[in-house]
Amino acid sequence: MMASLFSSFDPSTSTMISLNWLSSFIGIILIPSAFWVIPSRTSFFWNKILNTLHKEFKILMASEKMKGSTVFFVSLFSFIIFNNFLGLFPYIFTSTSHLSLTLALALPLWLSFMVYGWINNTIHMLAHLVPQGTPPALMPFMVCIETISNVIRPGTLAVRLTANMIAGHLLLTLLGNTGASLSTYFISILIITQIALLTLESAVSIIQAYVFTVLSTLYSSEVN
């Protein structure tokens, strides 16, 4: 029996052994096999999306030092969107609704950017702490504000993805649990509402994967 509603998002709720995290690795196992099959309309469509993302990330970086880095960010987008969509299927664990995964993605990215920036472009990183045109009297305060906003970046990345994933799933769970006590008329309304929410969650899954990746790309472009 669940202790609370949020325990439905616990990886070890359904089984004594926490095997639900294996859903995060299904894509890593299955996606490479797609390169060995005959190209289909789906694969052409997905390659079109990846090429579009590659061109956009290349513009955002706008640095000769970052050649080839778009492959990493496109792969990050693919991994996040796959796990977001996988969580929409019944009885499949949504790994991106946990801070343990999202923070594990955001924190090493931010830390590597900071280490690279402060070692190779120290003056550039110091200049970022004081926006252009800041009055001398406000410079100490601006340094504190910019430092705090920089430090909380991995947290905001992780919490944004987790909160958006868990909010829609929580609403779907709440509405689904009321179905047993409703009449036939209200159940039909509930089904329509659930389908509409599922469509919205599909859009949120795409948007949040895109936002996470674009913000990571922008953070990387700031250190050059």
Results as ranks from 00 to 15, higher is better:
118 W>V: 13
169 H>R: 12
143 V>P: 02
97 S>F: 01
129 L>P: 01
116 Y>A: 14
109 L>Q: 07
102 T>E: 13
142 M>F: 14
112 S>A: 15
92 I>Y: 12
148 I>K: 05
159 V>A: 10
161 L>Y: 02
164 N>V: 02
136 P>N: 12
122 T>L: 14
187 I>V: 14
152 I>R: 04
84 N>K: 08
109 L>A: 10
203 A>P: 00
140 P>A: 07
100 S>P: 00
74 V>Y: 02
120 N>D: 13
123 I>L: 13
89 F>N: 02
85 F>N: 05
183 S>Q: 09
123 I>M: 08
90 P>Y: 07
200 L>V: 01
151 V>D: 02
179 G>T: 08
111 L>C: 13
170 L>I: 03
96 T>C: 06
203 A>F: 06
150 N>E: 08
190 L>A: 10
192 I>N: 10
94 T>D: 07
126 L>S: 03
186 F>V: 04
75 S>K: 08
155 G>E: 04
193 T>W: 00
136 P>R: 04
83 N>D: 10
200 L>N: 03
204 V>I: 13
98 H>R: 14
147 T>R: 04
140 P>Y: 04
83 N>Y: 01
197 L>S: 00
147 T>W: 11
161 L>A: 10
129 L>S: 10
201 E>A: 02
141 F>M: 11
132 Q>Y: 05
136 P>T: 03
72 F>Q: 03
96 T>D: 09
159 V>H: 04
133 G>P: 01
200 L>H: 05
192 I>M: 06
189 I>D: 13
133 G>F: 05
92 I>A: 07
132 Q>C: 01
101 L>C: 02
161 L>R: 07
75 S>V: 09
137 A>C: 00
